[in-house]
Write a protein that binds this DNA or RNA. Structure first.
Length: 281
DNA sequence: TAGATTTGACCATA
DNA sequence: TATGGTCAAATCTA
């Protein structure tokens, strides 16, 4: 990679980082604005998707740089312990559930999880934690997730969701807040998570893991640019100056990635296509 | 004291 | 056989 490409990549990472920070702020503000009985409305769900896109883009760029740095042609440096090339995750145990990985700064996603295991992963710097939905027994919810800090950024979590939440009508988080189930009387790993979340892990039932990718091309998942134009979010415009400013800033971050392509045609996920396979399960 | 977390052991898979 | 995923007893915590 020449200096020009490196410069572009660095600039892209900086833009993405800024966008991520602003989206995080927006998420924080949104949390304060949403009613306690439905803290995870559609806008919150969309923000999770936006943050996920930022995180993924950053990770991809970082991976690209790492690969470059570790390539045989790159110079010196301390050789790190060889990473396992195995890509097992959800393929190891072959179940019919969906599998999807997101990269977030927080492990909180609105669902209530119970940690049931932790493993040191061969060749990985960080251990992996295993969570299952707290309603596994009460409602037979089969959703599980694996949480692991990324190698590139200790503050970023790679969260792999498997299975779907059946404990609540997660397919309609926008309209019908699921009834809270506090029968367990306590919360878990994230302590203050609600039981009425959007599902970052929702996918088509019975879809094979390798078919499930993090892609905003999905008809059910609007693209990032679309997300920012949805009524729920646009409703904030004008109602709250800081919110409107943040909205604009986040929107600009997406557009700010334009370098040598048509911004009218560009979608963030286009950046992922070449290395999308890295995120398939 | 009930529920959550930790952790070693066991099992499934590649 | 090595490794990842899950179980369940022990331990912790509110």
């Amino acid at each position: 990679m020449n200096w020009h490409e490196q410069g572009n990549m660095k600039a892209a990472m900086e833009e993405l980082t800024r966008g991520q920070e602003q989206a995080t702020r927006l998420q924080s503000m949104l949390k304060d604005m949403l009613p306690p009985e439905n803290p995870s409305g559609p806008a919150a769900y969309l923000l999770i998707e936006v943050l996920s896109s930022f995180s993924k883009a950053l990770s991809l760029l970082d991976l690209g740089r790492s690969a470059e740095a570790n390539s045989p042609s790159s110079k010196g440096g301390v050789r790190r312990k060889m990473q396992s090339p195995r890509r097992v995750s959800c393929r190891r145990r072959q179940h019919p559930y969906t599998c999807r990985t997101t990269f977030l700064k927080t492990i909180e996603d609105g669902f209530t999880w119970r940690k049931y295991g932790q493993k040191n992963i061969y060749g990985a710097k960080h251990s992996r934690s295993y969570y299952r939905c707290i309603h596994k027994h009460g409602r037979g919810c089969q959703a599980t997730r694996q949480v692991q800090r990324t190698e590139q950024d200790d503050s970023t979590f790679a969260i792999t969701y498997m299975g779907e939440h059946t404990c609540a009508d997660a397919t309609k988080p926008r309209d019908q807040p699921a009834p809270h189930d506090n029968s367990s009387g306590s919360n878990t790993a994230a302590n203050d998570r609600r039981a009425t979340p959007p599902s970052p892990a929702l996918g088509n039932p019975k879809q094979e893991c390798e078919e499930e990718v993090v892609s905003n091309h999905s008809p059910s998942t609007p693209s990032s640019s679309q997300l920012l134009k949805l009524p729920e979010l646009s409703a904030f415009e004008g109602s709250s100056p800081p919110m409107a400013q943040l909205m604009e800033a986040v929107s600009k971050q997406y557009c700010g990635l334009e370098m040598e392509f048509d911004p009218a045609e560009f979608k963030l996920e286009d950046m992922f296509e070449l290395s999308q396979d890295e995120y398939n399960c």
